[in-house]
Computed example of a mutant assay.
Amino acid sequence: MQLETIWIILAVILLVLELWAINVVLRSTGGWETKGLWLVILIFVPLFGLIAWAMFGPKREMADQRKS
């Protein structure tokens, strides 16, 4: 497999993960300030924003959803 093909596959995976994260942020129950901040981070700093969101973002809401 050529190196260009690998980069394209990785870019598509990153794009899909970004779109999924943006969808989850928009559907979350947080305030608009929090949503807006996460959206700006996810859009303008894609890879590091996705990592930061995965570490600090959805944990609290996911735990609440599991309880109910």
Rank of each mutant, 00 (worst) to 15 (best):
G57Y: 00
M55W: 08
A11E: 09
L17W: 03
L39E: 02
V25P: 00
G49H: 02
P46S: 13
I43L: 13
S68K: 15
P46A: 08
M55Y: 12
W20L: 11
T5R: 14
V16T: 15
T29L: 05
A52F: 07
E4D: 13
L26C: 13
T5W: 12
A54K: 15
W20M: 06
S68H: 15
V25Y: 00
L19T: 04
A52W: 03
I51D: 02
V25G: 00
E4H: 13
T29V: 11
R60F: 00
G57C: 07
L26H: 14
F48Q: 14
G31A: 07
L50I: 03
W32C: 04
F56G: 06
W7T: 08
L50S: 00
A21Y: 00
L42R: 00
V45D: 04
I51K: 06
K59Y: 13
T5G: 08
F44A: 10
M1D: 09
F56M: 10
W38N: 00
L14H: 07
E18C: 05
I9V: 04
L26Q: 14
Q65D: 04
L19V: 08
G31Y: 02
A11V: 05
P58T: 02
K35C: 01
G30Y: 13
P58Q: 06
L47R: 02
M55H: 04
L3A: 12
E18N: 12
L47Y: 06
E4F: 13
